[in-house]
């Protein structure tokens, strides 16, 4: 037993090493070529652009991947959660004048919605992929339409506090938006918290065990349903919060729910479904590809998100860091 477990760990390690080597082999010549195309300052700025956009993507993807990892539900209402969370956040910020309150309110509102969706709706069809698809898409329609009725169709942004508005100025001529730096920092904090919960706390251990083998966890006398609800709540909270964060970045408008869902899907597919490291890696990769592709091959900008995803899936059907089937 011991022996085989070690071997599994070894194969996983070898597998990751292979991924790293291949990534490096692709990335190094690409970077070299890119540097011949733009100045070093531009190159640095584009990296920052890619990472800060990746930070927004990480917010989107982490909630999705958490719910999928444990509950095995591909929550297609994730984009709807994002949209409505963003709208609630905007209204709260406008009423209270506090951006942070808006951020929390957006998260909490969607958490409540998430608990309703999980306990009342999704629990009745657990494990049935097709009904889940229909139900979560149905939920997206309802959420999107009610949001349109309540908040109208004009593009909306969240009012930012003064210290997050405008650019940071370095020297005479270099400007960079404060908000992008803030989002990048916030994403790093969120990732750290998630990793800490995952690796160092009891609930993290239970969740990880639940991902691998639910029956055993249930046999240990842990209420797996409660764990599911908590995971869904937390995932929904992050989804709602990411709507508020995204509203300062991309502007909210009807129809964006499906667009956001797509971004989340691309990230978790590239990274590997249900894997936290995968979400980090996927978000960074997608953010960087998007930022550089727009600069270097603008005609292909639609392509650059989906073509790498299709290629990665063909080579590694479970994503870069996903477990082998």
């Amino acid at each position: 037993m011991e022996h085989s477990a070690e071997r599994v760990v070894d194969t996983v390690k070898a597998d990751r090493r292979r991924v790293l080597i291949i990534t490096a082999l692709v990335a190094i010549p690409l970077i070299a070529w890119t540097l011949t195309q733009m100045s070093l300052l531009s190159f640095g700025t584009q990296i920052l652009n890619g990472l800060s956009f990746g930070a927004v993507l990480f917010f989107l993807a982490s909630g999705f991947t958490m719910i999928f990892g444990l509950l095995r539900i591909a929550n297609l209402a994730h984009g709807g959660f994002y949209l409505m969370g963003g709208y609630v956040g905007i209204t709260t910020t406008l009423v209270t004048g506090q951006f942070w309150l808006g951020l929390i309110a957006g998260g909490l509102a969607i958490m409540v919605l998430g608990v309703f969706a999980e306990r009342v709706l999704l629990r009745r069809i657990r494990g049935l992929v097709k009904p889940e698809v229909l139900l979560t898409i149905g939920l997206t329609f309802v959420i999107g339409d009610l949001s349109l009725a309540m908040w109208g169709g004009d593009p909306r942004t969240v009012p930012l506090p003064g210290y997050l508005k405008g650019p940071i100025q370095i020297g005479d001529s270099f400007f960079y938006p404060k908000y992008r730096v803030f989002v990048l920092g916030l994403a790093i904090v969120l990732a750290a918290i998630l990793f800490y919960i995952d690796r160092r706390t009891k609930i993290g251990a239970i969740v990880r065990a639940g991902v691998d083998d639910r029956e055993t966890v249930a046999a240990l006398g842990i209420n797996i349903n409660a764990v599911f609800t908590i995971a869904f709540m937390f995932g929904a909270f992050i989804a709602g919060m990411s709507g508020v964060i995204g509203a300062g970045f991309l502007a909210l408008l009807p129809g964006q729910d499906f667009e956001i869902l797509l971004f989340a899907l691309v990230v978790v597919i590239i990274g590997g479904l249900g894997s936290l490291e995968g979400a980090v890696l996927g978000a960074a990769v997608v953010g960087l590809i998007d930022s550089f592709a727009k600069a270097l091959v603008p005609e292909l900008s639609f392509f650059t998100l989906f073509a790498p995803m299709a290629i990665i899936l063909m080579i590694r059907p479970n994503g870069l860091l996903g477990k082998a089937p």
Binding site: L121, I125, L128, F141, D145
Partner: peptide
Amino acid sequence: DRWQTLMGLTFILVVLFAR
């Protein structure tokens, strides 16, 4: 006007009561 809500609710109801 809110036909999208109606469509979404149709999906949800079918899943819940006519699996």
